[in-house]
């Protein structure tokens, strides 16, 4: 076989099944191979779980504040929409990088939110809530994509960094909007804290568990 045409992965990962299910090119101990496709699936499952978490948080908050489901119904609809999107990401994950998919979806969602706001004649709601959130998430995804190309940091680490950075951005923007419309309290940025910090933690955990777990802890 002409080795010039083989990629590094092909040279390393000769399909020799081991009893523990790992792929190995080595007869005795084997190379540790973590298929990226599995990683993407897990990432998308995690994204789906985060949507459910956001929905559960909103619903609980609404029930505690109002005693019945009011605004959280909209959140539930958005979350259901998000879960559908997470599922569709799984099918696209094999063909496109996850971050590119994420960026495309955020742009689509921003447009959907804008169209919905205009269609339901609630542009003010969209301007003070939908637009800032969409902008922050798009900027976050875009910054992650660019940083991925410019730095040596891994995607999940970058995502975690930006998720953490989103929190002060969201609080700042929330305060700015509140001041602009005459209020002095924070509203939706609490949700960004509740969402972003656990999401960043999950990203870091995924990073270690998926990529380096075995290598990092080997003895």
């Amino acid at each position: 076989m002409d080795t010039r045409t083989q990629t590094p992965a092909e040279q390393f990962a000769k399909p020799a099944a081991l009893p523990n299910g790992q792929l190995s090119a080595y007869p005795t101990e084997g190379l540790r191979v973590s298929p990226k496709r599995g990683e993407k699936r897990l990432l998308c499952t995690a994204a789906g779980l985060l949507w459910i978490m956001a929905a559960a948080l909103s619903f609980t908050a609404d029930m505690l504040l109002n005693g019945r489901a009011t605004w959280s119904v909209f959140v539930l609809i958005v979350c259901a929409y998000g879960i559908l999107q997470s599922i569709s990401i799984v099918s696209l994950a094999a063909r496109m990088p996850v971050l590119n998919i994420l960026l495309s979806y955020l742009l689509v969602n921003g447009t959907v939110a804008a169209v919905s706001a205009l269609a339901t004649n609630s542009a003010r709601f969209y301007l003070i809530l939908g637009l800032p959130i969409s902008s922050i998430l798009c900027a976050l995804a875009l910054a992650t994509v660019i940083s991925k190309r410019l730095t040596r940091l891994r995607t999940l680490n970058l995502a975690a960094v930006f998720l953490v950075l989103t929190v002060p951005c969201a609080i700042g923007m929330d305060l700015l909007i509140s001041t602009y419309i005459g209020e002095t309290s924070m509203t939706w940025s609490f949700f960004s804290i509740a969402f972003c910090l656990p999401a960043a933690g999950i990203c870091v955990c995924l990073y270690f568990y998926l990529r380096r777990k075995e290598a990092f802890f080997h003895r």
Partner: peptide, 8 residues
């Protein structure tokens, strides 16, 4: 590309 590592 799969993640590949080796013991030293």
């Amino acid at each position: 590309m799969p993640y590949i590592w080796l013991k030293l």
